[in-house]
Design a protein around this nucleic acid. Structure first.
Length: 452
RNA sequence: GGCUCGGUGGGAGAGUGGCUAUCCAGAGGAUUGCAAAUCCUUGUACGCCGGUUCGAAUCCGGCCCGGGCCUCCA
């Protein structure tokens, strides 16, 4: 079986044929660091992390690039509101982003370029576009001229003529056509800026990804991912900039886009108050449960995120970890089973892969000494970025009024009561622990416990 | 209006031209001092109408309903 992925360019599932099978290169649009990451930001990170892990098992070398946008008008606004300098603001939120994504078991990309480190590359790209007649200067701005690109609109299937003809917002007076977009814009004295051949200013939003992907992956590379909402205009404009500044060289072979995340059935937004930051969720749910929730629907489907859904994901992880706990003394070598691999090779079908994990868990529950099954469960978990800790620490995760030593002491007391057939006392202790959120499980090897 | 993605059992959510998805919840049973966990058994399903086919929830056409995008957005 070969890897198959749905390519937004064709809207079809295609066999993945690498540009260079010895070296896979892919790029995902990363965060704009001006605030805490929300759960919607986490979805592409987690989804493309699974793709990254899969590619690494299939090919000898993979370079994964995910940028950090550290110059943007939203950042400027946040800086003015908070009074923090832009540099310290972006450093702070980039660090928070890293911590949060680490809690979700997302691997670091191989390269994590920052926009502000690539201003010279952006200059180069703008110059090239001006020279080739794909861009023009107007009132301190440099704009991409959509009319100069015959194939503009292919990814989003927008007709260039329609985009040129109609616009639903007021068109800036310096634009030749409403669909033209900014490559470089002037900065006031208060705004951050760089001296450029076109005056002091800052880059337009789309430019950085074109400049950074070319620098770190080359003009033509395999996969570019991001959220569905980036198809237009962001990715469409990336294609325009890259193709036109690279003499028509193909840009990206496979475009992948993850679906939207809603919260309680409604689009997440600050005004609706249904806004979950990853950090908030991590305060009362372990990262792997959040990760499972994000992977429980196929990446292209919309996913509704809610606290009950999150709780169900937690239960799902509990079930998988229970099988590992039952087989704790079984030696196993981690191995990626064929069923999990095939599920993921089929357009990253994570729900199918998770179902396979559950099948393996059932097998292991029936036969805890089966090292091969345990190895397959661990290996399948690994490629999904799940089951990365030992079961005991999983079940002891969380805070309660009672600490581990007290729990253990009460369990010893309960055992003494049970040995003496004093079930009134042993049940009283169990109830006391239950009231504190501790659930006991008696089994052949003794009593284990977990925080519920 | 243009583009686009969907409508599967109580809930979540895959998949396939004919064969149990899986998980949660429900029912019954095994096990247990009683539980918990686990195991076994178990009900209700593929929006509507046509067509192709020996056979369609799965392919084709039409219709109904819902979501998203159309220059802030993962």
């Amino acid at each position: 079986m070969v890897l198959r992925i749905t390519n937004t360019l064709s809207r079809q599932k295609e066999d993945f044929v690498p540009v260079d099978p010895k070296h896979i290169r892919f790029y995902v649009c990363g965060p704009t660091v001006y605030d805490y990451a929300h759960i919607g930001n986490a979805r592409p990170v987690v989804v493309f992390d699974v793709l990254y892990r899969l590619l690494k098992t299939l090919y000898p070398r993979v370079t994964y690039v995910r940028n950090i946008t550290d110059i943007d008008d939203k950042i400027i606004d946040a800086s003015q509101k908070s009074g923090d300098e832009i540099g310290s603001l972006t450093t702070k939120f980039a660090e928070i982003f890293h911590q949060d994504m680490n809690e979700l078991n997302a691997l670091s990309p191989d390269v994590e370029p920052r926009a502000t480190d690539h201003i010279p590359e952006m200059f180069e790209m703008i110059s090239s576009l001006l020279e080739s007649g794909h861009a023009y200067e107007a009132e301190g701005h440099v704009l991409f001229c959509v009319r100069a690109m015959e194939s503009y609109g292919q990814l989003s299937r927008h007709s260039r003529d329609e985009l040129v003809a109609g616009a639903r917002v007021e068109v800036a007076p310096y634009k030749k056509d409403p669909a033209d977009f900014i490559l470089w814009k002037p900065s006031t004295k208060e705004q951050p800026g760089w001296d450029s051949p076109w005056g002091r200013g800052r880059p337009g939003w789309h430019l950085e990804c074109s400049a950074m992907s070319a620098k770190h992956l080359g003009k033509t590379f395999d996969i570019h991912g991001g959220g569905q909402d980036l198809i237009f205009p962001h990715h469409e404009n990336e294609i325009a900039q890259s193709v036109c500044s690279h003499g028509g060289a193909p840009f990206v072979k496979y475009w992948m886009h993850n679906g939207y995340l809603t919260v309680d059935g409604e689009k997440m937004s600050k005004s609706l108050g249904n806004f979950h930051t990853v950090r908030d969720l991590l305060n009362h749910t372990p990262g792997e449960a959040i990760r499972l929730a994000l992977l429980s629907a196929h990446y292209r489907q919309p996913i509704d995120f809610s606290l009950p859904a999150l709780n169900e994901a937690k239960n799902g992880m509990d079930r998988l970890y229970t099988a590992l706990r039952i087989s704790a003394h079984t030696k196993a070598d981690r191995i990626l089973g064929a069923d999990v691999q095939q599920a993921l090779e089929d357009d990253i079908n994570t729900p199918q892969a998770i179902a396979e994990l559950h099948r393996l868990a059932s097998l292991l529950n029936k036969n805890p000494n089966d090292g091969a099954t345990k190895g397959a469960l661990l290996g399948g978990g690994e490629i999904l970025g799940l089951l990365q800790q030992n079961p005991e620490s999983w079940f002891k995760w969380g805070a309660s009024d009672i600490d581990d030593a007290e729990i253990e002491a009460l369990i010893v007391k309960r055992k003494e009561a049970r040995d003496a057939k004093d079930f009134t006392e042993s049940d009283r202790i169990r109830d006391e622990l239950a009231a504190a959120g501790i659930v006991l499980e008696d089994n052949a090897s003794g009593t284990s416990w977990k925080r519920s």
